[in-house]
Amino acid sequence: MKIPKQPVNQRVLKYLITVLIVAGSIWSASGLEITPERFLSAPSKVWILVTAMFPLDLSQEAIDRIVPKVGESLFIAWAGTVIGAIFSFPISFLAANNVSLNSFSRATKQVLNVIRAFPELILAFVLLPITGLGPLTGTLAVGIHSIGTLGKLSSEVIEGIDEGPLESIKSSGGSKLNELFFGVIPQVMPTITSYWLYRFEINLRASAVLGVVGAGGVGAELINQLRFRDFPRAGTVLVVTILMVLIVDTISAAIRKRIIKGREIKV
């Protein structure tokens, strides 16, 4: 007879977690030399910065400079997502343990884990000497990172499919390939497409940041304006970026909702 494991005592666990959280924050705060006074004085300092940004610099010259940069971030994010989607799609089938061989699946998952562990910025500056300063580097960095994340998410979707359709294809004489095309892909496509869009939203934020190392996009503009203490213009950069992200998020969220829910068909 197998004796079930005794569950961890809930109350002990609760105290342990509380102690862990309190001790962790005290250890971190003392290590970083952060005191409560610094936190209390932070809002007023932030307020000074915010007031320095207004009124925004909305001169024609500023707009002409900033809007194309924000657009560049958008294109980097989209192109990067497309790279990620195209490459991660076949890889995710290799990584799913119900479609691919067990050893294959494990190896592919490890590779995806390693890719995922590098932040876009680190990829960007390793690529920088090869692909040059500019948006191409950013695109590749975003793309490579997306392969890792999308590959993981998609393979998990594939692992969670309903086996019923596969069985019925098999029993009516379908080949393995038939199973893949008529059993697996139609089931996973809506979720995977919505993950692609979701990744695009995340990549948009990532690509906005990439400019900091010179990999294209709006980040360079913001850091330069802040360095030169041109706060009204930095404010404009921020506002334009926020507007773009908000618009893209709203559209993408609406499309994702529609993809997952499907279309209502009147019979």
Partner: peptide, 12 residues
Amino acid sequence: RTIPDLFWAMLF
């Protein structure tokens, strides 16, 4: 949520 993490870092 619209402002990326590194933008917050620059501002702070």
